[in-house]
């Protein structure tokens, strides 16, 4: 049986990778992918704690996180498409003005 702490450390590593991606990458699509990595790291924590506590709520909140992630991806990608039409670029620095 794997100790709970292994799952938590793995999840922390994945979350750190996702956060690093958000800060270090300069491509809007990769930034959105990094956000998905972070959401998945949190899901792993929820499921591991749910298994530890013998409780279904960990899995249920994972289900809700997945639906929110799907909504976030749909709206985020629509924004990326709209921005790309204006600037022909995926670099976030191209979009520093709110209005043009």
């Amino acid at each position: 049986m794997i100790p709970l702490s292994y799952y938590l450390i793995l999840s922390a590593m994945l979350f750190a990778i996702g956060a690093a991606g958000v800060f270090l990458r300069r491509n809007l699509i990769t930034i959105l992918l990094s956000v998905e990595i972070m959401l998945n790291a949190v899901n792993l924590t929820f499921v591991a704690f749910g298994r530890f506590a013998g409780d279904l709520d960990g899995q249920i909140i994972t289900f809700f996180v997945m639906t929110v992630a799907a909504a976030e991806a749909a709206v985020g990608l629509a924004l990326v498409i709209a921005l790309f039409r204006h600037r022909e670029s995926l670099n976030p620095d191209a979009f520093t003005t709110l209005k043009w």
């Binding site: 049986m1 794997i2 100790p3 709970l4 702490s5 799952y7 591991a48 749910g50 298994r51 530890f52 506590a53 013998g54 409780d55 279904l56 960990g58 899995q59 249920i60």
Partner: peptide
């Protein structure tokens, strides 16, 4: 302190693996 407590030590698998219950 409890590095090596297995994740499933305090509960049995049937408590969490039922899709119907979920």
């Amino acid at each position: 302190r409890e590095y090596h407590t297995p994740v499933g030590a305090q509960s049995d698998a049937t408590a969490v693996n039922s899709v119907a219950e979920m």
